[in-house]
Nucleic acid binder design. Structure first.
Lengths: 145, 145
DNA sequence: CCAGTAATGAGAACCACTCTCAGTACCGCA
DNA sequence: TGCGGTACTGAGAGTGGTTCTCATTACTGG
């Protein structure tokens, strides 16, 4: 999805929730678009010195409630935020235990389908209704090897 | 693994780390053995009123460092603790978005092997060295349906 | 242009978690 | 069995990421 369409769709999602697509929120979305994985609040504040911490948290919450961004908890540390799968497509995370960096990766649709089938049957056994799955790899990234 | 063996092995792991297996730690392990999923600090404190909060956190940290327990971060909420996979076997989590409850489930070894092969090849592409994977299902549990 | 309402920034408040420290329990050793 | 040293414990204070409050500012519909 190109940047223009992204902004248009974010605006639509926000308006559906009775929210405005203000310049602060545009800035946040652009930061997230530029990243190839979840971004922490601290990184966002460093990238945009004029943004108040409270505004960052508040707007990310609004964006989360409008399903524009997703909050990602990778470890014991801080939370990160990334665009929701509506924009990024379904994906998973490579979490480096050395530097804490998180990057996205995807499985092929065949692999993903096989995984979903497996998970569905496991969930059926436990009488659990699946809404989503979360799959992360923990290990060492290229630059930490 | 039966309770006796569990305590013996926990004791061994702790001694390897220069730690003692005190009565407080025995209590913690017994609480975790009785659970069928991660337990929060609050639940532990409720189950054992005589345990100081600081002792709970400190001992869980010691047990974690000795690879007896694993800290599990399921959502935006609090952390939970469970016995490490040495004791429970490799497993995954069913996370109920309704009540927040977390229960364990496992895949068959064939399914698990297939998953690992898929993940390994995806990681190779990204030049990422895999240490572990984490797979959770988010949805609605039986009693919240 | 003018309410009325939503968004913003600065700082205070909150709360899960960690640290400090004085008192207690345990272990090795004679 | 007693003794010294070290680890463990509990109570409370401290820390830091996150959330709340509120006065000010910026939209938006009429």
């Amino acid at each position: 999805m190109n940047l223009e369409d992204t902004h248009a769709q974010v605006g639509a999602l926000l308006r559906q929730n009775g929210q405005r697509y203000t310049s602060r929120r545009v800035q946040l979305v652009e930061i997230l678009v530029a990243a190839d994985g979840p971004v922490t609040i601290q990184q966002i504040l460093d990238l945009d010195k004029s943004l108040a911490q409270s505004s960052a948290y508040r707007n990310l919450l609004v964006l989360e409630e409008s399903h524009v961004v997703a909050r990602v908890v990778t470890g014991t540390e801080f939370a990160g935020y990334e665009l929701s799968e509506t924009f990024t497509g379904h994906h998973h995370h490579l979490i480096c235990s050395g530097c804490g960096d998180v990057t996205d990766f995807s499985l092929s649709s065949a692999e993903e389908l096989a995984l979903e089938r497996t998970l569905q049957s496991a969930a059926n056994e436990a009488q659990f209704t699946v809404e989503a799955h979360r799959l992360d790899l923990i290990g060492t990234c290229r630059s930490c090897t």
